[in-house]
Every structure is written in C-alpha cells, then in structure tokens.
Design a protein around this nucleic acid. Sequence first.
DNA 1: GTTGTAGTGAAATGATCGTTCCAGTACAAT
DNA 2: ATTGTACTGGAACGATCATTTCACTACAAC
Lengths: 176, 176
Amino acid sequence: MDDLVRVTGVGRGAIYSDFGGKRDLFLACLTHYQDATVTQAFGGVEAEGARLSAIEAYLSNGIAVIETMGLPAQGCLMGNTLSELSSLDEEIVKVVRAHYDRLTDGFAHALANEVGVSPTDVEIQELAGFLAISAQGLWAYTRGTDNINDLKKKAGTLIELVKLKLSSIPLESDSK
Amino acid sequence: MDDLVRVTGVGRGAIYSDFGGKRDLFLACLTHYQDATVTQAFGGVEAEGARLSAIEAYLSNGIAVIETMGLPAQGCLMGNTLSELSSLDEEIVKVVRAHYDRLTDGFAHALANEVGVSPTDVEIQELAGFLAISAQGLWAYTRGTDNINDLKKKAGTLIELVKLKLSSIPLESDSK
DNA sequence: GTTGTAGTGAAATGATCGTTCCAGTACAAT
DNA sequence: ATTGTACTGGAACGATCATTTCACTACAAC
C-alpha cells in the first residue's frame, strides 16, 4: 500500500474510498488486467478469422515485449496469482479459472479456423486446453531465465507440436 | 513462523538456532524438497534405462497423488516459488533454475533412450525443455481446478504430442 | 460566493509477524 | 551427582503494514 501511494501519487484515503481495501483493490486489478492487458495480448487470437498464425503471433509478440522490458520477466498476473493462492479465496479462484477458460476458448477458436472444424470438436478443445497450460508454463518460466533465445525456441517447439497434432486432424480444411 | 511452531511442535528458539532465520529456513526447504519430494516423484525418469513410459508414469503418478490428496492441489514448490519471486533473490532463483535443468536433463535422458539417440541431441534437448515447461504448467494448473479427469486428459495430450514429435525423429531406434 | 465533492498529506491505531531472549526442563555423557 | 547440550514455553521487542481519521486544499456546479 505504501508502494502504491508512493508510485501512483494517489493519497491513501482516496485508494481506500475508491476501492474497499487491499483485497478488493487486487480483485479490481485482476479484472482490469483481463480487460486491458490480456485483451491487448490475446485479442488477435480471439478475433474473427484468426488461425494458427494468430497463436504464433501471440507467443512471439509476448516474447518481444519481454525482450524490450528485459529478462527476467514478470510473468502473467493470472498465472502468478494462481501459484500464490494459499488462502483459497473462492472469488479470486473464479477469476483465474475464467482466464484459463478464456485462453482455451480463444485457442480453440483459432485452431478450429485453421483446420476447418467446429471449435467444439473434442480434439480441438483438448489441444486448446493443453496450449493454455503450456503457454502459462512458458510465461512462468520467463520469470526465472535470462536467455531470450531459449524462450523463442521453446515457443517454437510448442507451435511445432501443435502443427504436428493439427496435421493428424485432417477433415474438411485447407491447412497452412 | 507461528504456524510452523504450532504445526511442528518445535519451539521458536530451536527453529532459529537450527536454521538462521525465515529465509534460510525456506532455502533449506527448497533443497530438501529437491532431495526428497522431487527425487521421489521424478527419480523414475532419471533412472538408468528409463524411457517414455517413465515420463508417462511420472505424470500419472503425480496426478494419482493429487487425486488422493484432493483437488485443488498445492502444485510444485519450485513452480510456486518461481511465480512468487518478486524480490529476485539470486540464491533462490539459482535453486529454481537448477530444478528446471534437472527436469530437462531427466526428460532428455528418457526421451533419448526411447528413440535411441544421444541425450545431447538438439531436438531431444528442445523437446525435453518443452516438456519441463508444460509439466510445470500442468502442476500449476492443478492449484485451480477440481476436475481430475480434465487433468488426466491434459497429461494424456502432452504425452500424445511428445509421441508424435518422437516419431518424427526416427534414427537408430526401436520405438515402443 | 457558496456549497459539495474529491482528493491530499500526515498522523495515529491496531494487528501481524520476524526475531530475540531467557528461565526452566529433559536427558545423555562422564 | 554433575556438567553440558538441546529443547520448550512464553514473554517481549521492533518492524512492517493495512486501515482509519481528519484538517486542509482544489475545483466544479449553480
């Protein structure tokens, strides 16, 4: 709280009257992170007509941002929150779960477009959920490394594996 | 610290004389976690002659333990620590990095055995590093879900993708 | 100009927590 | 029996921190 007062230049009283307290402030941060940061970074994957290239762009853009900010990075607020959750605050868990669902839906959307099947396809859903987990794992990893090329290669491997899997789901599509 | 005194039944003074303080205690916990918990869970992958089946067992055993302990789970201490690292304590970062390296080496060892190539093979190394990240992502995810079947499917997808990739590295091997 | 709203700046409160200290106890070694 | 070691139980200290309160200021509305 002291840090917030110092960094934002906003008075203590204003913070406590605008938000209820520390926990509510944090919840508001989570929501704002979803609306602003995640939408900014992930919106391309959720956009109409997005395909595998949008997923590639999501990863490489994320890594590019990290590169300009300098390693080690800060990771994803959602993933960090999930790993810090000791007192399992149901309201906060709900927000984090919604994030994973959002990632999964977005990935499924783009993957389905790529292959030309329904986003509700079981294999697509499962692959999308897996992508969400691996991506979160990657963002967590950025907190501990200082090797940007390592990061890029790992993202590349993720995309490569997804492509391999996609090519084994050949239905009514024209694939890239 | 109060919790530790209450739960362990060890006096406060003893804790502070045996370990230096809170930070040193935590570092000792990290080291002990490596020696005991990780070795217990991951030793099969590191064992001589381990192959892909050992990796499958590592994942399914981990999920089985989680199932008996009940969801949501606690995740991996190394991964949790990495995500909680705000004051980047170099000594602690070192331990967490070593954990990722250990996972990567272990995976590379088993993957190389599976395919019949050297563990230093570039593609094997990259796939192993990717496995480490995805596995950590999976353990983090267990902190937020209560769906054990979802977990099992995600682990299955990870293994499936690894198999797909392995089958594209056919050198001098007899594969499973 | 007055009123109302929103914010500042700083002090004060109360809780939490890491750490230290010490008197007393259990017990093994000699 | 005595000495030494290791530990307990609990008090106490000091720092940190979330939260509250309040006198004062800036400013828009009317």
